[in-house]
């Protein structure tokens, strides 16, 4: 840590700039496409500009605006439930050793290792049995299957570097369990909750086949509408819906950015997982 702080800052600034360019540059063609009428090689810019794609994207026929609200609601619920389940699960995995822990870790990872369509078709049968198909509740619950591994693993990493002695100290000083959680545990693990929650939100946000199968066409989220046009080569409409599609993610990122600076000591890598 005896490096020249000015140099370190410059490097950090340059890295940040490169990262921003890397993230923003691919979005520029998307934005141009959404106003383009005919953009083909060898033209640098579209031959003419039009609002047709936006006119469709914002129309009742496309259903984009209705599904935007619904997609946000589903992603928020899936994130909240992921936190409620993932934090205690991560604590157990990060802090304690028990027989069969490796197996449990494998099982948690399984849904993101096994091909999605295989998981989806099996889950469809299970959800029909539970009477959860064709409902928003069912879609929220099924999104937990891909979101929980991320949430749990991030929290396991956080708790692997967490010392429960702080909690013992608070309790010995007379704090109630709630006070201990509120003033000792939560501040220490909050960055992990935010990172894990961000993962959970974005993973839920981008689900396609699970939403279609379990939602049975009654629950139309944005990816369902976006992929129709991305797959059919309609870059103009895919661009317009895509611009709407990235908004919540960018917003969530901006809101949580100050917790993600890496300066907080509690984000200590992903532990041994």
């Amino acid at each position: 840590m005896d490096r020249d702080p000015v140099m370190l800052r410059t490097l950090r600034g340059l890295a940040g700039l490169a990262l921003i360019l890397w993230l923003v540059l691919p979005l520029i063609p998307l934005a141009i496409w959404s106003f383009a009428r005919g953009w083909r090689f060898p033209d640098i810019l579209p031959q003419s500009w039009t609002l047709q794609a936006w006119d469709y994207a914002l129309s009742d026929t496309s259903g984009v605006l209705d599904s935007l609200t619904l997609t946000i609601w589903i992603a928020l619920c899936a994130t909240g439930l992921s936190i409620l389940i993932g934090v205690p699960a991560g604590r157990a995995l990060g802090l304690s050793t028990f027989r069969g822990k490796g197996l449990v870790e494998m099982m948690i990872l399984a849904p993101i290792i096994v091909p999605g369509i295989a998981v989806a078709l099996g889950l469809h049968g299970v959800f029909i049995g539970l009477g959860l198909t064709n409902t928003t509740t069912g879609v929220i619950l099924v999104h937990l299957i891909p979101t929980l591994p991320y949430m749990t693993l991030v929290m396991a990493g956080i708790f692997a570097n967490y010392d429960t002695a702080f909690e013992d100290q608070a309790r010995s000083l007379g704090a109630s369990p709630w006070q201990t959680f509120r003033h000792v545990t939560l501040p220490a693990i909050l960055p992990g909750i935010i990172v894990g929650g961000l993962f959970a939100f974005l993973v839920s946000w981008s689900q396609y086949i699970l939403t279609l199968l379990i939602g049975g066409g009654r629950v139309i989220t944005l990816p369902l509408l976006l992929f129709n046009f991305a797959a059919s080569g309609r870059n103009d409409i895919a661009g317009a819906i895509g611009m709407i599609y990235i908004l919540p993610g960018v917003l969530v990122l901006i809101l949580t950015a100050r917790h993600l600076t890496g300066r907080n000591a509690a984000i200590g890598g992903l532990g041994r997982l």
């Binding site: 049968g125 029909i128 049995g129 279609l212 199968l213 797959a231």
Partner: peptide
Amino acid sequence: GLTDTTEAINIVLGEKEA
């Protein structure tokens, strides 16, 4: 809207099996 018609058939197939 579907990206691939097979998706709808998978729904019906899954329902029949269940």
